[in-house]
Design a protein around this nucleic acid. Structure first.
Lengths: 145, 145
DNA sequence: TTTCATTTGCAATAATGATGCATTAACACG
DNA sequence: CGTGTTAATGCATCATTATTGCAAATGAAA
């Protein structure tokens, strides 16, 4: 069915010098089919026992280092992962978009359309990354009530 | 020596319906004498064994709920705490300033002078809080090298 | 198919954080 | 000032997230 999608993931792995293993393909598949960043515990839940927990940690870490996914810390200190938009790479990881963390369902949305405006940071501080997390109640939770 | 300072902390506690215990005063004293947000492990280190770890957690949690301090999650998912600027209270907790997380010394600075510019968030999302963490190399670490 | 580096699974460990419960301390009231 | 009541603390325990070392399994290339 998803021949081309699968091929796409495999290319992504090979391009980054990673072997295309079942576990990695599964993680890529899950992450790419979700509209919000996924927390590690939730991922673990989705995958079940097919992949060892340690393996999952290592896969996520490797992917992050290669720029395949990015990690967002939510307000509760848990890691959330999402597929990077195309323009990320190992050395040019642009992470400067906004995330929305729902305080009710805990989901993390990537608000790709919102950019962080330029800021004047005090002299002497070298900026490497920016991470804006907006928290509140998401659309779905608002409608549910 | 610090009679008035101490009085100030005690007032703060009483104002929030909290008993003025030694542990709480010590935490307030430490936090107010630091120029950057302090991580939980570092706090634990500073305090030593005088205060139980659980007590420290509970104090920090209580203070946060009362709006006495605020919590910032750094990029590594550890909690950092800082005294709120005067205008915070339990129901009006304005946390919308920027924090700088040094990737080298791990310190977290409150950049009070920098404000988060207004953002257009998609309709249906109710914003309750904003948290912008800029990471990079801080002034001191830059000068050290 | 065989070799070799990578990847995985398992066991063990560490750190952060929460909970239940008995003990202690603060403070309001007589 | 005592003293009772409520809040706060300390201790033991447990849950979760994350890391490391090592042996076994697997992918890829020859």
């Amino acid at each position: 069915m998803n021949q081309n999608k699968n091929q796409q993931y495999e290319d992504l792995l090979v391009k980054n010098g990673l072997k295309r293993t079942g576990a990695r393909l599964q993680v890529l598949d899950i992450l790419s089919h979700r509209d919000s960043a996924t927390s590690q515990p939730y991922l673990e839940n989705l995958i079940g026992k097919e992949i060892d927990r340690v393996t999952l940690y290592r896969i996520l870490k490797t992917f992050e280092e290669k720029g395949i996914i990015h990690r967002v810390m939510d307000n509760h200190g848990t890691a959330n992962y999402a597929i990077c938009s195309n323009s990320c790479s190992e050395h040019n990881h642009h992470d400067e978009h906004v995330h929305f963390n729902c305080n009710n369902c805990l989901r993390v949305y990537c608000l790709d359309e919102v950019k962080i405006p330029a800021l004047k940071i005090a002299k002497g501080f070298k900026v490497e990354d920016m991470n804006l997390i907006v928290s509140g109640i998401c659309k779905e939770c608002n409608q549910a009530n």
